[in-house]
C-alpha cells in the first residue's frame, strides 16, 4: 500500500485508497489521512460518491424471475419429470 503523507497526499493516491476503502476498510491511520483529504477536496468527495452510486445502482437492478417453462424445458432435455 502506498503511504499517504499529509502534505503529499494527492488526489491520485486518494483515488486508489478510496477503492480499497470501499472493499475492505483501511487501517485507521490510512483511513484518517483519506478522511482528512476528503474533507478538503470536493473533487475526491464527488468521485467517491459517484463510485459508490455506480455499485449501488447495479446492486439495485432487480433480478428477473425464472419462468416456469425454463424448468420444464430443462427437465424434458434431461428426461426427468
Amino acid at each position: 500500500m502506498h503511504r499517504i503523507h499529509r502534505h503529499t497526499a494527492n488526489c491520485r493516491n486518494v483515488a486508489k485508497h478510496v477503492q480499497e476503502q470501499l472493499d475492505y476498510g483501511l487501517s485507521s491511520g490510512a483511513y484518517r489521512k483519506i478522511k482528512e483529504h476528503l474533507e478538503r477536496c470536493p473533487k475526491c468527495t464527488a468521485y467517491l460518491d459517484s463510485l459508490k452510486k455506480t455499485v449501488f445502482l447495479y446492486q439495485r437492478y432487480p433480478d428477473p424471475h425464472v419462468p416456469k417453462r425454463m424448468r420444464q424445458r430443462l427437465f424434458a432435455v434431461l428426461n426427468l419429470h
Binding site: 488526489c11 491520485r12 483515488a15 486508489k16 473533487k43 464527488a46 468521485y47 460518491d49 459517484s50 452510486k53
Partner: peptide, 13 residues
Amino acid sequence: DEGRGAQTTIPPW
C-alpha cells in the same frame, strides 16, 4: 490513471 480529469472539476451525481 483513475480516469479523472486532473484539472477539471467533478460534477456531483
